[in-house]
Nucleic acid binder design. Sequence first.
DNA 1: GCTTATTATATCGCATACGATATAATCGAG
DNA 2: CTCGATTATATCGTATGCGATATAATAAGC
Lengths: 153, 153
Amino acid sequence: MAQQYDRDDMLKLGNQLCFPLYAASRLVQRMYHPLLEPHGLTYAQYIVLMVLWEDAPSAVSHIAERTILNTNTITPLLKRLEQQGHITRTRSPQDERVVMIELTDSGRDLHNELGDVPEKLYGSLGSSDEELWALKQQLHRFIEQLQVVVEDE
Amino acid sequence: MAQQYDRDDMLKLGNQLCFPLYAASRLVQRMYHPLLEPHGLTYAQYIVLMVLWEDAPSAVSHIAERTILNTNTITPLLKRLEQQGHITRTRSPQDERVVMIELTDSGRDLHNELGDVPEKLYGSLGSSDEELWALKQQLHRFIEQLQVVVEDE
DNA sequence: GCTTATTATATCGCATACGATATAATCGAG
DNA sequence: CTCGATTATATCGTATGCGATATAATAAGC
């Protein structure tokens, strides 16, 4: 993308890739908020719950890896979910460094209660499924490359 | 995208569009951090400065509109930039509700100092310019749709 | 000219998100 | 078996980011 602009244009907001990523992500989160808030959930908690609905129990580090978040972000977030009664946190007897996260009945119930959230969200957009799918696939490829670079630093 | 999955799959992390957006945005920000930190800048400050390098002086609300951030996010951010000496904040004599943001010499100098940041960043990725450009365009279209929905709430 | 509606920014409170650092547990090499 | 290296989570401090609310200024309608 560098070759397409002169030096001044390189710093224009409209020519950045970082900015539409940033803006789109926050707009999507704003869309989720009214659907999650009645269940007392934040967007980040919802992301973590999606990992657990697929793969519980899980270690904190596994959740961090799946969500591409630092463990020091995950830990306080999980503590709040625990306080809300949706998960439990226990040290693994096999390796006491590891904290295992399990879903409670309440946490599992949320899976049912929130099952229609994505449909409600994407249903209200003008994009076709094909367009959204294509965007998702491109983002996955992009993330793979970003992860390579970020890990090398 | 709703039609392609059954109900269970709808809540799998790998099938979400929101998640790769969220992850990609944060990974990009992590890439920027080592390039901005030596200048004492955060990523959000950098985004705001890009608006100002194009369009200064500007009102707070204009910056908020361009960045798609709330004014209550922008105001504390601008105060820190002011403290660092990169901008000034003054009430407009024409309309005392409005705060005008101007760049200082120091703020303008940063434009030169940070001119090679995007190239350093994207140069290290494996993606072609065409791929990054296509992703950017798709995100712009997506944002337009999101903004329509978010504003209707 | 007055009053209500609207607009612009500021403050409050809470939840991230991450770099840096600390603590404790486990692993592996010698 | 011991010790250094590595790993997992926790804490600290700072900067967002946003919903809700407050304050002040301007606009619009009568």
